[in-house]
Design a protein around this nucleic acid. Structure first.
Lengths: 119, 119
DNA sequence: TTGACACATTCCCATATGGGTATATGTTTG
DNA sequence: CAAACATATACCCATATGGGAATGTGTCAA
C-alpha cells in the first residue's frame, strides 16, 4: 500500500503547508481562486487542485459568483485533529517539567565539576 | 515535486493513522517495539519504520534496555500542530452557530408550511 | 562460541503526490 | 456569435510512501 490519500481526512489534507496557507487566507473571509493564487504566489491550477482536496475533506465550501468561485473555510473537520492533539497537551507540559528537572541536575553537576576543578 | 516527506514535521508524521496509534499506545508510558507490534497487530519491521519517522520528527525518544528498545512519547512537536489548529476553534464554533440559525429558519419554514397546509 | 531473541535496515512494488504545462468548461461582454 | 476572463481538469514526471519479505546488527543465555 502507498501513503494514504490526502483526501482521506483532515489530518492528511492539512499536512500540506500550501493547504494550510490557503485555509489561513480564507480565515479572513470568502476569497476567489484568483485572490488565492495571488496571495500564495502559486499557479492557478495548483491552487484549484489544493482547493479540491480541501473540498473533498469538507474543509472548504464553494459558492458560485458569476464566473468566479468563492471559497470559504469550514473548520468543522479540524475538531477531530484538535481533539486528538489536545490529548497530548498534558504530556508536553510534563515534558517541560522534566526538562526543568534535567536542567537543574545539569546545573548541579556543573557546580560540582567546577568545585572539583574540571574534568 | 512529490508530496512532502513524512519526516518533514509533526503534521506529516501524524497524518498516518498507525503512527497516531503508536503515540496513543505510548501515551501510557514506555513500551518496547515488541509490545507495539502486538498492540497494533502490525509486523515488526513496519513498527520500527514508523518509529523511525516519529523519532526523526522528535515525537518519540528511545532508550536501550538490554536487547530491547524502550520508546516514549515526546509531545513537544505537537504544540505547533495544536497551535495552528487552535486558531480555527472559533471558526468551527461560529460554524455551529450558523448551523443553529439555519436549523431555526428551517423550523420556522416548516411551521409556515404546515400552516399553509403542506407543499 | 553458538543459538535464540529483539530490533533495525534493505529491497521490491503499487500508488498517490504536487508542480508544470496545456487544454476543457463555463460565464460575461461586445 | 466571438473574444476575454475565471476556474477546473488532464497529462507528464520525479519522488516518497507503507506494507511484505529477507537480512543485518547487537544482546543475552548455555
Amino acid at each position: 500500500m502507498a501513503r494514504a490519500a490526502t483526501t482521506t481526512d483532515a489530518f492528511n489534507a492539512v499536512a500540506e503547508p500550501r493547504r494550510r496557507e490557503i485555509l489561513d487566507a480564507l480565515a479572513g473571509g470568502e476569497l476567489a481562486v484568483g485572490d488565492l493564487t495571488e496571495l500564495l504566489g502559486l499557479a492557478q491550477p495548483q491552487v484549484s487542485k489544493h482547493l479540491r482536496v480541501l473540498r473533498e475533506v469538507g474543509l472548504v465550501d464553494v459558492r458560485d459568483d458569476g464566473r468566479r468561485r468563492l471559497y470559504r473555510v469550514n473548520a468543522a473537520p479540524l475538531r477531530e485533529v484538535h481533539a486528538w492533539v489536545g490529548r497530548y497537551e498534558r504530556l508536553w507540559n510534563e515534558r517541560f517539567d522534566l526538562m526543568d528537572d534535567v536542567l537543574d541536575e545539569l546545573t548541579e553537576t556543573e557546580a560540582e565539576t567546577e568545585t572539583r576543578g574540571g574534568d
